[in-house]
């Protein structure tokens, strides 16, 4: 095996620290997300870290592929600052409103267009939608094998892959061969911090923006039109409860809590 060509799928997402300030417009019922700062999806940073470590080990090249609006370019470039070699931004009005399957079609088309790709890595799930669908669906569309929720990964010089897939009470060990799509779990590694030399180098790395026509996709297969699922109304979950304040010294407070435990049937 002569070096690894790795694509890393990345998604700019609104900063999870700001999700509590997300509002639904009462008139239109649409999500008000303007002004929320974008970050690279946290799990994707773990995927990128895995890619960088593999290239340090095997040599090769790391290209990020992202489906996002053009204004997300600066966020995607943060991955270049972490160490990726190149970024492809798949951007077209026609892609808007895509569900995970329509998104996966675009991402798969981008990867095909890149040519020669041994391994596709992605964060197992995104912070905003959180479906965890994309790694598996990209793998299906590309017609190559795929695994997700991977916590440990080893690739030898003959392109054999060994991986551990996280299960509820342990893991399943899986063997296969490249090419493959792998959804990286956050437990796999700790992403490196962005360094100042990395930021400076990122400014000159190649960035390509490709649209529907460049990718040779049918407009009916992408965006809202190409999505088998369609969104309906949005709402906010009601979590509030009528809180009764308990006051007093610790001994008194504990006594009240014991009484509550009794009345709720967990203490006899």
């Amino acid at each position: 095996m002569k070096g690894l060509n790795i694509s890393v799928l990345v998604k700019p997402v609104p900063d999870p620290g700001c999700y509590e300030s997300i509002q639904i417009d009462p008139q239109t019922g649409i999500l008000v997300r303007e002004g929320l700062p974008n970050i690279l999806n946290p799990a994707d940073k773990h995927a990128l870290e895995a890619a960088l470590q593999l290239v340090e080990q095997h040599s090769g090249r790391v290209v990020m592929v992202s489906m996002a609006p053009p204004n997300a370019l600066e966020t995607v470039k943060e991955g270049l600052a972490m160490g990726a070699d190149e970024a492809w931004l798949l951007s077209d009005r026609a892609f808007a409103g895509a569900d995970t399957l329509a998104t996966s079609r675009v991402l798969a088309a981008g990867i095909k267009k890149l040519g020669l790709c041994d391994l596709v890595l992605a964060g197992s799930e995104s912070a905003d939608g959180g479906t965890a669908h994309v790694p598996s669906q990209v793998g299906e569309i590309l017609g190559i094998s795929h695994l997700t929720n991977v916590t440990w990964l080893n690739i030898d010089t003959d392109a054999n892959v060994r991986a551990r897939m996280k299960m509820e009470n342990g893991y399943i060990e899986v063997e296969g061969a490249l090419p493959m799509v792998i959804g990286v779990s956050r437990g796999m590694n700790v992403p490196r911090y962005t360094s100042l030399p990395g930021i400076l180098a990122a400014q000159d790395k190649p960035v390509k923006v490709l649209g529907l026509n460049n990718l040779g996709l049918d407009p009916g297969s992408v965006g809202l039109a190409g999505s088998p699922t369609q969104p309906g109304k949005l709402s906010r979950p009601e979590l509030k409860r009528q809180g009764e304040r308990l006051e007093g010294e610790p001994a008194e407070l504990a006594k009240r809590i014991v009484a509550i435990m009794r009345s709720s049937g967990v203490l006899s």
């Binding site: 600066e74 470039k77 943060e78 600052a81 911090y193 962005t194 360094s195 930021i199 400076l200 990122a202």
Partner: peptide
């Protein structure tokens, strides 16, 4: 500049 904004974000995260 974009690089300065990126630096701010990187330091903030650290």
């Amino acid at each position: 500049s974009p690089a300065q904004e990126m630096l701010r974000k990187a330091v903030r995260e650290f």
